Simulated assay, not measured.
Amino acid sequence: MAERKVNGWVKAALEYGPILAFFIGYIRLKDHTFLIGGAEYSGFLVVTAAFIPLMVICTGLIWALTGKLSKMQVVTVILVVIFGGLSVWLQDERFFKMKPTMIYLLFAAALGFGLMRGESYLQDLLGEALPMQPEGWMILTKRITVFFLGLAIANEAIWRLMSTDNWVTFKTFGLPAALFAFFISQNKLLQAHAVEKEKP
């Protein structure tokens, strides 16, 4: 299915809306305990249980509107279902907190495997949208691989050493801000290795 254009605000709302909803839901329910099916569930687990179908629905809507999903979106929603489901089923919030770690480790491993083969899998994903010389793609891929490893380590450190409040804030605001700051910091690299499109 060919990719279709969709309003940027709509796409952003579908991508980041579930994360913001999780944050708001957690803030409101974090001090509550719910008796469901004879078992007690913390507010965190209840919000996690609601987040799973919301994430699936929003990802499905993105696909329906654009006709395309990135590999990262597909992997993310799969891991949300798996790790979120395990947390709710086993009543253990640690599984859901590990999800960002797994996402970033998987992508770092995939990009690192490509680098070992002398290839930039990142170029395969973004090459059409961001024309750049092969050397630039290799440099950017190396940097993103290290960056993803850093995010995985940071997530592990925060959820293991800090409070759930700190982790939720980090997941909701810290991770997106870090991604945004990283790509802004690569502007010089993108300009130095940019490929100018031929004028018709």
Score class of each variant (00 low, 15 high):
I139S: 02
F180L: 15
E93M: 09
E15A: 13
K11Q: 10
I62Y: 01
S185V: 12
T169K: 11
I144Q: 06
L14Y: 05
G17D: 10
E93A: 14
L151C: 06
R94A: 14
D165M: 06
D92T: 08
L122S: 00
K197L: 12
P200H: 07
W89H: 12
F180Q: 06
P100M: 06
P131Y: 09
A110Y: 15
L151E: 11
V81E: 06
L149T: 07
A64D: 05
I27C: 03
F51Y: 15
Q73L: 09
F183D: 06
G136S: 07
I57S: 03
L14W: 04
R94G: 07
M116S: 10
L125A: 14
I27Q: 14
L45W: 07
K11G: 02
Y104H: 14
Y41M: 08
S87Y: 05
F147P: 00
V88Q: 01
A21R: 04
K171C: 03
A109P: 02
A2H: 09
D124I: 12
L106E: 03
K71V: 12
V10G: 02
L149V: 10
M1H: 08
G114F: 04
W137C: 03
P200C: 03
L86E: 00
T141F: 07
A50K: 02
T66L: 04
M116L: 15
P176Y: 09
R160D: 06
L122F: 10
F147S: 00
P131F: 09
V168S: 00
